[in-house]
């Protein structure tokens, strides 16, 4: 699924990486626990989270995740966006809840990482 489709499905706002929306993501994980995300062996999946802080970006950086979708219209500050830009990431934000976000994307065909 293209990131552009994800943006449309969950009515997301793109906060950085607008020029990379044609990238395909094959799978996603939804978690607010970064410790869990760090145990995943796979790379290049979409991280859906309600944990909106610098450490969620750092966790994505270490885990080779290039796209993050923040749920519940969380406030993503400039420091986070700058760190995302430094790492060539796509950062998005949706007004949908975690449940609604995951439900819509799963129904549209986005696979879980496991």
């Amino acid at each position: 699924m293209k990131l552009r489709d994800i943006v449309q499905i969950v009515e997301a706002e793109v906060l950085c990486g607008q020029d990379q929306l044609d990238i395909e993501v094959g799978a996603a994980v939804a978690s607010d626990l970064m410790s869990d995300v760090l145990t995943l062996k796979c790379r290049d999946f979409l991280l859906i989270t309600g944990l909106c802080n610098v450490q969620s970006i750092r966790t994505a950086e270490m885990s080779d995740i290039h796209a993050i979708l923040y749920v519940r219209d969380k406030l993503v500050d400039l420091e986070m966006i700058a760190l995302g830009e430094d790492n060539n990431m796509i950062i998005m934000r949706t007004p949908c809840s975690m449940f609604k976000t995951v439900g819509r994307l799963y129904t549209a065909g986005l696979k879980p990482v496991y």
């Binding site: 626990l33 970064m34 410790s35 869990d36 760090l38 145990t39 944990l51 450490q55 966790t59």
Partner: peptide
Amino acid sequence: EMGFGAGMGLPNIKE
């Protein structure tokens, strides 16, 4: 609150 502290750090380093 920062998304850590679930008792998975040291086991994940070992892994």
